[in-house]
Design a protein around this nucleic acid. Structure first.
Lengths: 213, 213
DNA sequence: CCAATGCTGGACAGCGTGTCTAGAAACAGT
DNA sequence: ACTGTTTCTAGACACGCTGTCCAGCATTGG
């Protein structure tokens, strides 16, 4: 299998510390955790913590960085293909990844660590989405009716917001495939359609609404 | 004007402490601020801080609570009306409020304080949105094609995400009216339309995309 | 004007942090 | 199985920030 590089003790200690941090954050919140709480749960000496990480922030940072890198690695090939159509595969992949790394994702999406990690995630996804939108416009020779920046922000906002809910819901309300399809349908066709109305949405700002049945 | 209840010194101290907190958080982040930093910027004694608030979290909490209450107060009448159509007025009002209270909103939307405040805001807006969607479905006799919970999460996610971007952008890229209209158009008609395509979106999951020009 | 209330600086104990030690334990390679 | 190397450990340390208290001064509203 994988080369499993490095001292086994080091791998063990790091893994225990990470798991301890994640579980404690989910229970009590990042701010209320002392380094000693982490080492206690990991069943390691406090000094060991400081031989691996400079402080609590460092540990959280590493957890988040690893997650991000893995996600990027998985997404990269899918994003290129998505620019030629509307496959929805990148969203699905993110939901799958989140499903596998549920707890770590929950820590990030709750905004623990004063939201740094979450902002970073949103920023990276927004960048990627904007790039896809631009490439798509180029590919199909169309001009976006709305600023691509706004488009990307909104699209990522939808995903993240639904992902948040999906990760915290117990039991898991939908399969990754099912949420992704909902999200994509809703996003592409719009809320007017999703709410159950027929035809074209009313002009924004106009008084009144659709015909009443 | 308003009754201006209470000792003038108290009002002054509280106002100074709140302003100091907000500006410091925007500069350095919530976690890196000591109580003494706050009192120093407010030009007050450290003991004064503790005669008004129990700790840093308490102060942040009050700032956030006040903001929430004001927003709720402003939104309440608009939400009822919105259930009868698609006025977009609640969104506009939130953007206006955020525009007035820019700094405080930025603190919340950045997820400072381990995201508690932001989660609270999102939760409240989601609740409200879900209620509006349900009332609307009732009013017009339609059945939502997608789970109302998901609908509400996604819609609020869009708003918050765009609001985040809009508050941090410098100079302000759009008027509150302009962003709101974009957001509403996009959300109602969907990304397929917003991206510049004509006609109906492709079936989700299908290979390929729209016709190429 | 004055009684009540708020503000002040300084002193205090308590707690968590991050560093450092010397010795015990576990490791990888032979 | 042996051995030189690395990691883990408990405990001690100084430091900085917290939250509380006080006695005296300043500002307030009536």
């Amino acid at each position: 299998m994988s080369p499993e590089v490095g001292d086994r003790r080091v791998r063990r200690s790091r893994r225990l510390l990470r798991d301890a941090l994640v579980s404690l954050v989910l229970e009590r919140g990042y701010a209320d955790i002392k380094v000693e709480d982490i080492t206690e749960r990991a069943d390691l000496g406090r000094a060991t913590f400081y031989s691996h990480y400079t402080d609590k922030d460092d540990l959280l940072g590493q957890v988040v960085t690893d997650l991000q890198e893995e996600l990027d690695r998985r997404l990269r090939p899918l994003l290129a293909a998505d620019a030629q159509g509307f496959t929805g595969k990148p969203v699905l992949e993110m939901f799958r990844h989140a499903d596998e790394e549920r707890d770590a994702y929950r820590v990030v999406l709750r905004g623990e660590g004063d939201g740094r990690a979450l902002r970073q995630l949103v920023e990276a996804r927004t960048q990627a989405a904007a790039a896809v939108f631009s490439a798509r416009a180029e590919h199909f020779g169309v001009t976006p009716r709305i600023d691509v920046e706004v488009l990307a922000r909104a699209w990522v906002g939808e995903q993240i917001s639904v992902l948040q809910w999906w990760l915290e819901a117990d039991p898991r309300p939908l399969s990754p495939e099912a949420v992704t399809e909902m999200l994509l349908d809703l996003s592409l066709r719009g809320r007017y359609w999703a709410n159950g109305f027929e035809g074209r949405p009313p002009v924004v700002g106009a008084e009144g609404g659709p015909e009443r049945r």
